[in-house]
Amino acid sequence: MGTESETRGAADAARTRGSLVRGLALRWDTAVGVLLVAVFAIGLGSTDGFGSADNLAFAFDDIVEVAVLALPMTLLVVAGQVDLSVASMLGLGSALTGALWNAGWAFEAIVPVVLLAGAAGGLLNGWLVTRVGLPSLAVTIGTLALYRGLASVALGSDAVTGFPQKYADWAVDTTTVPGTFLTYPVLLFAVLAVLTAIVLHATGLGRALFAIGAQEEAAYFAGIRVKRIKLLLFVVTGLFASFTGVLFTLRYGSARADNGLGFEMLVIASVLLGGIDFDGGKGTLFGAVAGVLLIGVLKNLLTLNDIANEVQVIVTGLLLVASVLTPRVIAAFVERRHRRAADSPS
């Protein structure tokens, strides 16, 4: 393998590989689920304090923005799109919250404005993708810079603090839903995750998303409103992203323009780790949630074991590469075995 002679039968091979990758992807999300349980069990056995209610509340609360963002991102990637601007929108949401708070607005008035800004940002992404016809990757690299830039313009390098206590209390990890170790934001995530799973796997809209991701033209010719659906996805993503901006601000009690810097990578890493195919058309929400939780649990375990933050960065990178590489390596291996099996009798 590895020379240009491998190119023979490229189309056929790609097709077989496609179906093999798909077959594996179905099992891939299960595998990530199993891995999550295994890591969890290892954590319980090896690390003191990992299983405590306080720590688990912290561990899940710590990644709640990434987890919330992973939900619309899963829908986008299934539909063959991507939004790299989510973390910048988080930052913009946070910066707007801070700037308006500084300007003396009531917190109750700030939130709708921030959400509206998020929807508008999503609308811009969606408009450029669906109406101008640009690839979502290029568009959202641009808006990644744009929204983070606007966040800086709005708030500069200031940090705004002193938000109303009642909202802050709601968000912090020391407040839990009575009788559980879950914080309110994590509970909210759980509800959103169930709703997203229903949309993706049990509704016509979900079917349409898979069809659009797998073969956009065929979906359009089947009467599916491709552009409208994509636009809607980007708007919802923008909305979620600005909401996580408010959430992040409350959890840390500090509004800054650079809040959530680089989170887009974590979100995408989680989604891909969960077996959502970057080329669209394949994956399950269960996988994506398992991917997010795996990253969260790993992060927590590494921290508890005093492993440096830099190593955590490396681990995230490795996970990201492994999540896309492993299914393909397995597929190539299976394919070669098949070929050998087919060759041997004749």
């Binding site: 079917r207 069809a211 797998a214 073969q215 065929a218 979906a219 010719f221 089947a222 599916i224 058309g281």
Partner: peptide, 17 residues
């Protein structure tokens, strides 16, 4: 390209309309 979503199942392709 236009008639079918090739990697979707037979039943879902028929169901898509």
């Amino acid at each position: 390209q236009r008639g079918l979503v090739m990697e979707m199942s037979i039943e879902r392709n028929i169901g898509l309309t």
